[in-house]
């Protein structure tokens, strides 16, 4: 929006000029995206989630009581791993990722992806981007790459914030895997990093869907709302037992499989299925976005 009001001097108003060397366009896109207040606000909200969780768990267990024994139990006990947080702060990373992956993270990605092209069209800057000799395919790839960088950044923000809060409020050290075995803190950190990468990769499908929807409309809000709406719909459909035959093909179905990295030995089956599914979504919706974007008339 701010770019629309910016003076229309130069090729692309309000953005760093795209240099004619590989990576120049990507760098200017990244700068534009990550300098936006909207992006920073999204990342801020994501960083706040682990803080809230950490404080809540700390307050709840301040009297020495255990979390599970108190009120809720079973499914109501909160996100995965939360009962282990008091033992080891590193578990806050897993809890925070498990809590943000179903909704907060993909919503943030949907906002960025949905806005990628539709937002430019809405602001009237898409034409200028295409005037620069970048080509539509390259622009699309750059937009997708930017969205993927955001996926990783958002996940890492959650993970690092959780790690900091976990270290501040809870003991750290050797940790117990969910299989009951022990691993050292260093290996625990390694697994946490691996989990963050898997979580970021889980968002690849949503990013592709958002980008495709973004090529369909010239209203950024419409693309974002549709992406997030689709996300919620799929999450609800994933809960309906009668649909279990199609559920393995929902992009969100295997999201929580990242927890399998905390088993000993690691259980890879569902993680690979998740990654494969995300690749299929990226290929199908990415190529659909390409077909649409390279053939449509750009009027704004």
């Amino acid at each position: 929006m701010s770019r629309a009001e910016a003076p229309a001097a130069g090729t692309a108003p309000g953005r760093a000029p795209a240099r004619r060397r590989p990576g120049g366009l990507l760098r200017s896109e990244l700068l534009t995206t990550f300098r936006r207040w909207r992006t920073l606000a999204l990342l801020g909200v994501l960083a706040a989630v682990p803080v809230l969780f950490g404080i809540a768990v700390k307050v709840e267990t301040a009297d020495g009581g255990s979390l599970g024994g108190g009120g809720g139990g079973g499914e109501e006990a909160g996100p995965a791993f939360i009962s282990q947080v008091t033992n080891n702060g590193l578990f806050l990373v897993f809890t925070a990722l498990a809590a943000t992956l179903p909704f907060f993270l993909p919503m943030a990605v949907g906002v960025i992806a949905g806005d990628a092209l539709a937002g430019e069209a809405n602001a009237g800057t898409l034409r200028y981007l295409l005037v620069a000799p970048a080509g539509r395919t390259r622009l699309l790839l750059t937009k997708y790459a930017t969205t993927l960088v955001f996926c990783l950044a958002a996940t890492l923000v959650v993970a690092l914030s959780a790690l900091a809060v976990g270290a501040a409020l809870f003991p750290m050290g050797e940790l117990t895997t969910i299989s009951g075995t022990r691993i050292g803190f260093g290996e625990g950190l390694e697994r946490a990093l691996l989990i963050a990468l898997v979580v970021a990769a889980s968002l690849v499908g949503v990013a592709a869907i958002g980008l495709f929807l973004s090529t369909l409309t010239s209203s950024g809000i419409a693309a974002m709302a549709t992406t997030v709406g689709l996300l919620i719909t799929v999450q609800i459909l994933d809960q309906i037992p009668q649909l279990h035959a199609v559920q393995p093909y929902f992009f969100s179905h295997y999201w929580l499989s990242f927890a399998d990295l905390m088993r000993e030995p690691v259980y890879w089956d569902e993680i690979t299925r998740n990654l494969g599914l995300q690749a299929v979504y990226a290929a199908v919706f990415g190529s659909a976005a390409w077909a649409r974007f390279t053939t449509k008339d750009i009027t704004a």
Partner: peptide, 29 residues
């Protein structure tokens, strides 16, 4: 022997004369 749940696991471990059962969802043994 362990039963794999969503993001949790229930393990029965027999080692020598000790038997442990660990439920990671509730963090109880």
């Amino acid at each position: 022997l362990s039963i794999l749940d969503d993001a949790a696991e229930y393990s029965l471990i027999h080692n020598g004369d000790e038997v442990w059962a660990y439920d990671s969802a509730s963090d109880e043994a």
